[in-house]
Simulated scan of single mutants.
Amino acid sequence: MRHLVLADIHGNRFALERVLEVAPAFDRVLFLGDAVGYYPDGDRVLDMLMELEALPVLGNHDAWLLALEVLEVQGPVLEILAWQKARLKPRHLDYLRAWPWGREVEGALLVHGSPQDPFLYLEGTEEAREAFAATAHPLVFHGHTHKAGAFLLLDGPKPWVRHQRFSQGGSLVLPPGVRALVNPGSVGQPRDGVPGAAFALWEGDEVEFFRVEVDLDPLEARMKEVGFPPWLLERLRHGQ
């Protein structure tokens, strides 16, 4: 089965629409969390994920939106989430509440941050080693860092971990005995210095990474319409 792997859409429906427009044929959608936050159309993103019958896991922004009433911290991120939550319908909230923190699909583990902690960023090899130690799954898909790439582990008397970037796309074939933590990159807000929507296709022992250009004009018009801060658009222009 061929899986379209998506992460960190963050209310950017125009980026998601672009991905669905150009993605090669797939059988099922896997979503690694953070449907909401940053950009205005969290409701539409959730509608699209429902229409796709995606298999989702909960991200930190999704969890924050659900828990806004009990969070004590403040800031622009939570202000955006409150704005979005006020515009969600009961079906959207019921849908989000049903998302698990992790799930298994064809032997692979889906999480948002790390097998240890869904809020933990897998940024370096030490975090990756701890993540590998926290699960027996040979393949883990995660998001959260908004950076496309994979940590690879070769078990043995002296295990080694290395990281491979896929910001410009590319293909990863997993040899026997190698385990992997795979991040498809962010659909809605890449942070690896390369603008455009990131996604991956997974089938068997191969993961193919993609980065596609997204026209920012419709999003800019939408953000101006609802009064979202322009610095969020500048992040997209620079892939930051």
Rank of each mutant, 00 (worst) to 15 (best):
M1E: 06
R2C: 03
L6P: 03
A7S: 15
E17M: 04
R18N: 01
F26L: 11
F31M: 12
G37C: 00
Y39Q: 03
V45W: 14
D47F: 08
E53A: 14
E53N: 14
V57K: 03
G59C: 08
N60Y: 05
H61I: 08
D62Y: 11
A63D: 13
L68V: 09
E69L: 10
V73S: 04
V73W: 02
V73D: 04
Q74M: 08
G75Q: 09
V77W: 00
V77K: 06
V77L: 01
L78Q: 11
I80R: 08
Q84W: 09
A86R: 15
R87V: 03
P90F: 14
P90R: 11
H92K: 07
D94T: 12
L96C: 14
R97Y: 06
W101V: 02
E106G: 13
V111S: 02
V111D: 02
Q116R: 15
F119D: 07
L120C: 09
G124H: 10
T125Y: 03
T125V: 13
E127S: 12
E130C: 00
H142K: 11
H142L: 15
F151K: 11
D155V: 00
G156Q: 13
W160P: 00
W160T: 09
Q164K: 13
S167M: 05
Q168R: 13
G169F: 10
L172M: 05
P175T: 07
P176W: 12
G177E: 05
V182C: 06
V182S: 06
S186P: 03
Q189H: 10
D192Y: 01
G193W: 10
A198H: 15
A200L: 06
G204H: 09
V207L: 14
F209R: 09
R211F: 03
D215R: 11
E220Q: 08
E225R: 15
V226C: 15
G227I: 02
P230Q: 05
W231K: 06
L233E: 03
R235L: 10
